[in-house]
């Protein structure tokens, strides 16, 4: 797993490459905890190059989403491949998250 973080204006972007699971979750969880603890934080997690997510990864994203919402911020997801999107569908997490097909659309949604 590789993670890349950068800012696109006021939006903190996290890009995850490879498997996002219990064995790789720690640095991602740490980054998300720091980033989403800021009031009004706007966070985009780009899963375009993520090949797999397990339940620990999903829990990490859910925790970050809840924290972000408590702090009046937003956390969006974008760019899921089919197997990853299917996991979100099966667990119905697609109901809980705002999910966009690619980064550009997600950034546009933040701008609205």
């Amino acid at each position: 797993m590789d993670m890349k973080t950068y800012s696109a204006g006021e939006i903190n972007v996290l890009e995850i490459t490879g498997r996002f699971d219990a064995s790789t979750v720690q640095p991602i969880a740490t980054w998300l905890e720091q980033t989403t603890s800021t009031p009004g934080a706007r966070v985009l997690v780009n899963l375009t190059d993520t090949t797999f997510v397990d339940s620990t990864a999903l829990a990490t994203l859910v925790q970050a989403l809840k924290r972000c919402q408590q702090m009046q911020g937003d956390l969006y997801l974008c760019g899921m491949r089919h197997p990853v999107h299917m996991i979100f569908e099966l667990t119905r997490l697609d109901k809980a998250f705002s999910i966009f097909s690619d980064k550009e659309r997600a950034l546009q949604a933040f701008a609205k």
Binding site: V62, I87, E89, L90, T91, R92, L93, K95, A96
Partner: peptide, 29 residues
């Protein structure tokens, strides 16, 4: 079904299908 997978149903006269959850898991919303 609260976000649980995999749940498979195979009627005696049909093919196996995946039963999709109708709500998110417990503790999310």
């Amino acid at each position: 079904n609260a976000g649980h997978a995999p749940v498979l149903y195979r009627p005696v006269d049909g093919e196996a299908v995946l039963l999709r959850a109708e709500s998110t898991a417990l503790g999310i919303l």
